[in-house]
């Protein structure tokens, strides 16, 4: 299936390059901004506790956006970072079955003597390669930005690598939703809509859980609640949440496989 993976990556190379450039630029700016706006000096102003809205958008329920790790965690949970990186998951996932049917390529590809499951597996490899490329670009931007920001540099630049690693299971979860939507939906547009709708709803649920203390429990109902980049940068990769998200993603991928095997492809 390697030629198929290569062809899909070539077909998406401009999108991957664009999203990678976006992730790189955003996290570069976030890294540079820490020093320039003197966030380390804002701690005392807020009584060493950032407002709930700041914390909610940082994605770290227990973290502090004003600390170097919390600030970079905010970068890795910035809505624009999520849009750029999850665009890969939704684009590749939603395109895997419904996209190929809409484009007409399914008539050539899925009539080959290859099980549909293998095409899904190959599409998953396409997603992984594209996602890793975009995350690597974002990580590179964060590293460079942090290197030019004294406080961040002193806090440890190498630890920034934990954030994109912690992010991969979340991206896999969203991709798995998109794969399942693609396998079940009649059209590419509908698959995109379902995957995007689920993702936006899940994100908002997590933000609300951070904003309103009594609704904190909501975060356990959304995949975004299991992604805390600030804590990952500070404490290292958190295996439990990553394993849980990966497990649910695997269940969704099995569902996608079942739907794809049974559906009509025309």
């Amino acid at each position: 299936m390697r030629p198929f993976v290569v062809a899909e990556l070539r077909a998406r190379r401009r999108m991957i390059a664009g999203l990678g450039a976006g992730a790189f630029t955003l996290l570069l700016i976030v890294g540079l901004a820490y020093h320039s706006i003197g966030l380390n000096a804002l701690g005392p102003a807020f009584g060493h506790h950032a407002p709930a809205a700041f914390t909610a958008f940082s994605g770290s329920h227990g973290g502090d956006i004003l600390s170097p790790h919390g600030w970079m965690g905010f970068g890795f949970n910035h809505p624009m970072f999520l849009v750029v990186t999850l665009a890969v998951s939704i684009s590749v996932g939603a395109g895997a079955v419904a996209g190929e049917v809409d484009s007409g390529r399914a008539e050539l590809l899925f009539t080959a003597p290859i099980a549909r499951t293998r095409f899904l597996t190959a599409s998953l490899a396409v997603w992984l390669a594209a996602e890793v490329a975009v995350l690597a670009a974002g990580w590179a931007g964060a590293m460079i930005g942090a290197l030019f920001s004294g406080d961040l540099r002193h806090a440890g630049v190498a630890a920034l690598a934990w954030a994109p690693l912690q992010y991969l299971p979340l991206a896999l979860f969203v991709a798995a939703c998109a794969f399942a939507a693609s396998a079940g939906a009649r059209t590419h547009g509908r698959a995109n809509g379902i995957a995007l709708g689920v993702t936006v709803f899940a994100y908002l649920l997590n933000v609300v859980s951070g904003l309103i203390g009594s609704l904190d429990w909501l975060r356990w109902l959304t995949p975004f609640g299991y992604y805390e980049p600030g804590r990952a940068i500070g404490d290292g990769l958190r295996i439990g949440p990553a394993a849980l998200l990966t497990g649910v993603a695997v269940v969704l991928l099995v569902l996608a496989r079942e739907l794809a095997e049974r559906r009509d492809l025309a």
Binding site: A7, R10, A11, G104, E107, L108, A112, P113, A115
Partner: peptide, 17 residues
């Protein structure tokens, strides 16, 4: 899939990369 090993197919509206 095995049954399609000796099949060649051209659809009415072929689409390529």
């Amino acid at each position: 899939a095995q049954a399609r090993q000796r099949l060649g197919y051209m659809p009415a509206d072929p689409a390529f990369y």
